[in-house]
Amino acid sequence: MSRAPYVSINAETALLEILKAPVSTLQDFCLLAGKALANLFRAPHYWDDVLIQMDRIGVGSLPIICLTGGFSGAVMALQMSKALDTYGASSQVGQIVSITLVAQLGPVLTSLLVAGRNASGIASELGSMKVTEQIDAMRALGTDPVQKLVTPRMFAMTVMLPFLTVIADFVGMLGGWLVALGLIGTTSALYWRGVYDILVFADVLQGLIKPLVNGLVISLVGCYYGMATSGGTQGVGRATTQAVVVSSVWIFVINLFLTQLFVNL
């Protein structure tokens, strides 16, 4: 009987800790994001690191982005042509491929691939640095790790992801064109006119804003989990997984909210 209150207090404390953990994580994430953004406006700027990251994130991701974009466009054209054929509108396949890629699939797919490839890379790189005291050494040697490590990665990914998305969209349209030309029997002129005509400014803007926001979030999530790593090599593995999972979830959440915003424009 006398043990009951202790059990109750322990359970309360444990529950409180469980509830506090996500709030604390969000607070730390926002602090890191604030510092990284503020560093854009104060010296020193590590432009060499920015260029290296742009190369790793942008150029390094190109093959997988092109491959995925091309096959997505081709599959979409193939699948949609069947449905459109029912209404005798298979000539409209270019419009379907174009609007779906530019407004939705292009930004989401590209962001997911970059998250899988680069958020994991960033988290494991910074995580390894953290557990081997390289981050502490950087601080001891008078360098702000957020300025040196986080800001260049954030800037590079935010700039490169819209470019990658545009490339993925275009390669996807090319994939759709090949299918439309070879398997559906549409003419090139009809396909590309449909691709062009369907797009309005809001769609293009939506297709560029989404990767911009996604780039910011993916890079910061990767950096946050990397910088918060503890527990040796196991901790690095955990940080890498968390970075990919959390950034992927955020990509879908951001896509939903931004789509809602642009639909109502």
């Binding site: 390894s128 640095m129 081997t132 005291e133 390289q134 502490d136 050494a137 950087m138 601080r139 001891a140 040697l141 008078g142 702000d144």
Partner: peptide, 21 residues
């Protein structure tokens, strides 16, 4: 940032060296 100027007068060898790999 205020600590950087003070740390400039101090050197440190970390336990596992902490060299930038």
């Amino acid at each position: 940032r205020q600590l950087f100027a003070i740390r400039a007068q101090v050197g440190m060898l970390f336990q596992e060296s902490a060299l930038f790999d």
